[in-house]
Design a protein around this nucleic acid. Structure first.
Lengths: 210, 210
DNA sequence: ATCGCATTGTAACTTTTGTTACTGTAAGTT
DNA sequence: AACTTACAGTAACAAAAGTTACAATGCGAT
């Protein structure tokens, strides 16, 4: 774990903090598709993402979903941060997008470290900023863009996060994450294919040029 | 200013911090409609809201607007917080919704106080949490609700913030904040009126029962 | 009062998105 | 091979939202 930590966080955290994280943090590995947290769960520890990717989803009362953003290497979950401090329930669902490695920090350390380590404070504030910015981008997408543009953004984003131009998703899965219907996604994907921007296969989409 | 501070923040901040705020903070009064910050501006100080209300707006490249949320008494602007720390430009526009009183804190104090005062840290984290929560609610609205429901939420919110069941807005103004067109707003308002939920006047809307 | 302008009401139409229903097809199972 | 099931394609239609155009009205300025 120490190696993971040094590789990913040395430039951010001072040695003393790295040592503390190494002492109290618990290494956790999750497989693609595994659920990390569910809406309504109480949060007991804070994740530091070492490798992989986690998608953060919002759901309404009818069970309609919406993808908010992805967490990647070096990220932490801002929602978790506040939940920890306030003893509040999770407002979101987190699912591993890829096989993912995390270090789980007990929430008691949060308060302690924010007082003790300047680098920790900066990390936490930086995380908040990034998450707020991603939320803003999500708002921009759904408020200012039509579904065809949102779909393109979605595919680009997915490509970036998985680092793979072959996206292994069904149209239905994409529809869930964009909170629309399968038929609409199929329709728009077909249009993108006819423009030569993607190629459609069963259970996967090849991105050619978006 | 000391009086304002004590009235609004004593239960949150310790005396030493109140004293510091009183020393370095600058009292600022803005009239309804006055702009506090524009997209792209650099942020030099952090506002503590003593009274009144401030609306936070997002805008896209075409100049289309969207109301994100309101700041009220005791709030601060989370976007500003991160902007201060990162020396980044503002992603949002802030306009006084009512006549508003603020205390402006120089950004240098931010870093200092987060290390020094536990109550300040808690306040900052609490603010982040509230703002993230409000952003989530905004996302819920635009992702999961139709325009008629969004309009109702908007009116309810406006009533709450201004503490007045008479809303002084034109249909065009509402349309801007919901990022739709005036015709759509007029149509939906008329429907609400025919249901006896509101009464329409020139330049104002009386909320009867929503 | 008359003018001019902002605001509101409304009809007619288009575009976008969502829904229903049905077909075809790939791929695994028996 | 026949069967089953999940996935994808597509047409036809419905609903929601946006657009254009124009009329009516309130209200302040002259």
């Amino acid at each position: 774990m120490l190696t993971d930590l040094k590789e990913n966080f040395t430039h951010i955290f001072e040695d003393a903090l790295i040592a503390e994280i190494n002492e109290v943090g618990i290494l956790k590995e999750v497989k693609e598709g595994e659920k990390l947290i569910e809406i309504g769960d109480y949060v007991r520890s804070m994740p530091l993402l070492i490798s992989g990717a986690v998608k953060i989803l919002r759901e309404d009362d009818n069970g309609d979903e919406l993808l908010l953003y992805f967490l990647e290497r070096g990220d932490t979950c801002a929602m978790t941060l506040t939940c920890c401090l306030g003893q509040k329930k999770s407002e979101i669902r987190a699912i591993a997008e890829l096989d993912t490695t995390l270090i789980m920090i007990p929430i008691q350390k949060m308060e302690e470290w924010t007082g003790k380590y300047k680098s920790w404070r900066n990390f936490v504030f930086q995380s908040y900023h990034e998450r707020l910015t991603e939320m803003l981008e999500t708002i921009d997408s759904i408020a200012f863009f039509n579904m065809d543009e949102r779909l393109v953004k979605y595919l680009q984003n997915k490509q970036k996060v998985t680092n793979d131009s072959l996206i292994n998703s069904t149209h239905q899965e994409i529809a869930y994450e964009l909170n629309t219907s399968r038929v609409v996604v199929s329709r728009l994907l077909k249009k993108l294919e006819s423009l030569g921007k993607i190629e459609l296969y069963r259970n996967s989409i090849k991105i050619v040029s978006l």
